[in-house]
Design a protein around this nucleic acid. Structure first.
Lengths: 214, 214
DNA sequence: TTGAAAATACTGACTGGTCAGTCACAAAGT
DNA sequence: ACTTTGTGACTGACCAGTCAGTATTTTCAA
């Protein structure tokens, strides 16, 4: 799987001359994630990214075409591998629908709440309107793929008599949204004393299942 | 109620010389909301705000001290009135806790999904790390105030035998998050075909109550 | 093995464009 | 006349992106 994006003026088909087995791109990307999350794309100075990565600004241009390309690369390098893992996990699952939901909540919820994936989600949300093609890619590949998958699982739960009949698409969104929101919260206004992410996710998951059971 | 913020270098106690009974500030603020939401604070040029408001850039400086002040004023002028209304509504409510939740979901959910309040939420989330005092103010006044209030209502529901015993703080967050997330979704990656905000909120509300009932 | 040449990796200093914020002046209202 | 409301033109700082040149690593002939 590869990040394909429509070619635009601001996104000229990225030849991406990243040389392999070189740690520089990863150093730079890791520095960029944190700064982009904390200050936003526009307000982040490439010089600060360079400092944080321990290189000079010009070095960034050896590995990335432009500041925008750095942003695109971030999604390419950090999101796609996570996706493959999550999908494999979901495909392998056999068992009652409610167990799948529990697994999903623990996996996805914790991932967004405590890893760099939450920072990336918040970043994409923040910059979505400025990078519509990237936002479309991320939306369809990450949350919508998750929603579709969930929708099917809930349908299966209904067919097998575990869950009550309901609008499965709405249910999928209602299940997913607290997981995403917890991740965004922890990477923007939070962390704080009021919202305890793990407890919130656990409660949500159990209460959601309880509400759905016949 | 007034927006008080700790005085910092970037926020020098805002004397706010906004002359009253003048439509200019509102024109400017309305133009700013939309541009800030779509491009973010940093990437929005004051000249574009001016164009959209139908004035010259220098005119903005008759009513606002700086670009940052414009952002602060946006919260002052657009959030505080909404808050007062919501609080009055909540205080006046008498009836079963589940009815309160329904009212809350319809009110707050629709507000964030379909009005400028969703855009403001998304904006604050996006810029939270860059404007920590504003983010603190917003977080404590808007979502956390809502969470506290909800927490109490759920407690009341438990005490009156309507709801099962549970972690009321986690429950409040789990109830609130889909409402907030729907608003953010609609103002960033959405609108799209997959997420229908009203159906999502309605399902969430009913399923949440169903899960909570004894 | 050594060391000169080639290839690769990196950088400091610069530039051209952009934009927040200013100011001297103009128009409109009273 | 005087105050309020407005503006076009300017400026100084900032920063993405470039480039000429330096360091380091690799290659390979003697």
């Amino acid at each position: 799987m590869d990040l394909k994006l429509v070619e635009t003026a601001s996104n000229p088909a990225i030849p991406s001359p990243i040389k392999r087995d070189n740690k520089r791109p990863h150093q730079i990307l890791n520095a960029a994630i944190e700064l982009f999350r904390d200050r936003g794309f526009e307000a982040t100075r490439l010089e600060d990214v360079a400092d944080k990565a321990g290189v000079s600004k010009a070095t960034i241009y050896l590995y990335f075409e432009s500041k925008e390309d750095l942003f695109y690369a971030l999604i390419r390098e950090k999101v796609v591998p996570m996706l493959e893992q999550t999908i494999a996990q979901a495909d392998a699952f056999q068992g009652p629908a409610s167990e799948f939901l529990r697994m999903k909540a623990k996996g996805v919820g914790r991932l967004f709440a405590h890893s760099e994936q939450g920072a990336i989600l918040k970043l994409v949300i923040s910059e979505a309107r400025r990078f519509p093609d990237l936002s479309d890619y991320y939306r369809t590949e990450v949350p919508e793929r998750g929603l579709e998958n969930l929708s099917k699982v809930i349908r299966r739960g209904i067919d097998e008599g575990e869950f009550r009949e309901c609008d499965t698409e709405a249910a999928a969104a209602a299940f997913m949204f607290p997981l995403l929101m917890t991740g965004i919260w922890m990477n923007s206004v939070g962390p704080d004393e009021i919202v305890r992410p793990d407890e919130t996710i656990d409660f949500h998951c159990e209460n959601f299942i309880r509400g759905l059971q016949v």
